[in-house]
């Protein structure tokens, strides 16, 4: 089932994590206490030029040595620390959350037009597949993911998320089915700038995974949401599709509809379906994807999962439930139900 909520302040005014914690906790009915998580953009202004790598370590001996060595080979660690946490009675600490602020050495990736991102992507894949007991689950600049196995309020208190101020927040309350409620399986999922929260199940996972793996991504977290982050990176960053078209590839109009479109639209949509057929996502889902520039929410093509959007001033909210949005902001200018496959886009003002 799962519950999701996201907010963006388009004027980039910071919001601390206390309200989203209450909103997510309101949807406890949608979870099982086995996974919750938050992502926030703009929380590390002092290290804005560094990639904030969040890792779960099983211990600080072998896995950390190996990760340190890999990172030092590929760049420079500006600062590192254990992510501050406060023990919670109903949360069992199975990993040690750690963060590095890291700058990759671009000269080590000649021939790439985006060497920094390519190095980070490569390092994430390398550490997650080759270092036992280490998992990178957040790797963007000036953003951070905070997640664990527990109820939304417990996880929020564990990481003290009210201490962080971000202009975009994503939050997710998990009811695990496909994989056990381990920390790495909690949402949000992140790669570079991209973070994803997802309610539902992607029945096209096998197709999407085979597609994305042929572009050098490796799925390591045993859950279908992970591919969404990688697909966004491929289509949005590497192929440079604007958000609308990226969502169109993920949840395209039906052929019946395309056939009725005007010629230019028809050929654009046909081209998207032909080129990105393997990126089409099937099954019941509601997803919110975020980058530093904004958030995009959308559902599957027949809207088998709920998604509601609302606006209040500069803030745009996307959530599974209107009640959760109203917990954050009782006084809304507009509330609406997006159609199946229709993206809700909130971009920061430039």
């Amino acid at each position: 089932m799962c519950g999701i909520i996201s907010v963006i302040d388009r004027s980039k005014t910071g919001m601390d994590g206390s309200r989203i914690k209450h909103a997510l906790s309101l949807m406890d009915e949608r979870g099982s206490g086995e996974g919750a998580g938050y992502a926030a953009y703009g929380i590390y202004p002092d290290y804005a030029d560094y990639y904030a790598l969040h890792l779960f370590f099983n211990n600080l001996v072998e896995p950390k040595d190996k990760v340190d060595e890999i990172l030092k080979t590929w760049g420079e660690i500006e600062y590192e620390e254990e992510i501050p946490t406060i023990e919670q009675p109903d949360l069992r600490r199975t990993h040690i959350p750690w963060r590095y602020f890291f700058k990759p050495d671009c000269t080590l990736m000649p021939g790439s037009t985006t060497p920094e991102e390519d190095i980070i992507t490569m390092l994430v894949m390398k550490i997650n597949t080759s270092v036992q007991g280490a998992l990178v689950y957040s790797s963007g600049k000036n953003i951070g993911v905070f997640k664990a196995s527990g109820w939304p309020e417990t996880v929020a208190d564990f990481y003290q998320i009210e201490q962080y101020e971000g202009y975009i927040w994503l939050a997710h309350n998990r009811y695990p089915t496909n994989t056990s409620g381990w920390w790495g399986g909690a949402h949000p999922f992140n790669l570079l700038d991209w973070s994803v929260i997802h309610n539902g199940e992607i029945t096209s996972y096998g197709t999407n995974r085979r597609y994305i793996e042929s572009y050098g991504y490796t799925c390591t977290m045993f859950t279908d949401t992970e591919v969404v982050a990688y697909l966004c990176d491929l289509l949005g960053r590497k192929h440079g599709l604007p958000e609308e078209l990226m969502v169109r590839a993920f949840a395209p109009p039906f052929w019946d509809e395309i056939d009725r479109m005007k010629e230019a639209d028809c050929s654009l949509n046909t081209a998207i379906r032909l080129t990105y057929g393997s990126a089409l996502m099937n099954g019941p889902f509601a997803i919110v994807v975020a980058t530093a520039d904004g958030i995009v929410g959308f559902t599957d093509r027949i809207k088998l999962r709920p998604l509601v959007a609302a606006e209040a001033g500069d803030r745009l909210y996307i959530s599974s439930e209107e009640a959760a949005i109203r917990r954050m902001e009782p006084d809304l200018d507009r509330v609406w139900m997006p159609k199946a496959g229709e993206p809700v886009i909130g971009k920061v003002k430039v």
Partner: peptide, 16 residues
């Protein structure tokens, strides 16, 4: 029955 409404999502979907 497999929760798929487009043939693209069946193609190469060996998880099913």
């Amino acid at each position: 029955a497999a929760g798929i409404n487009s043939i693209e999502s069946l193609r190469g979907n060996r998880d099913r």
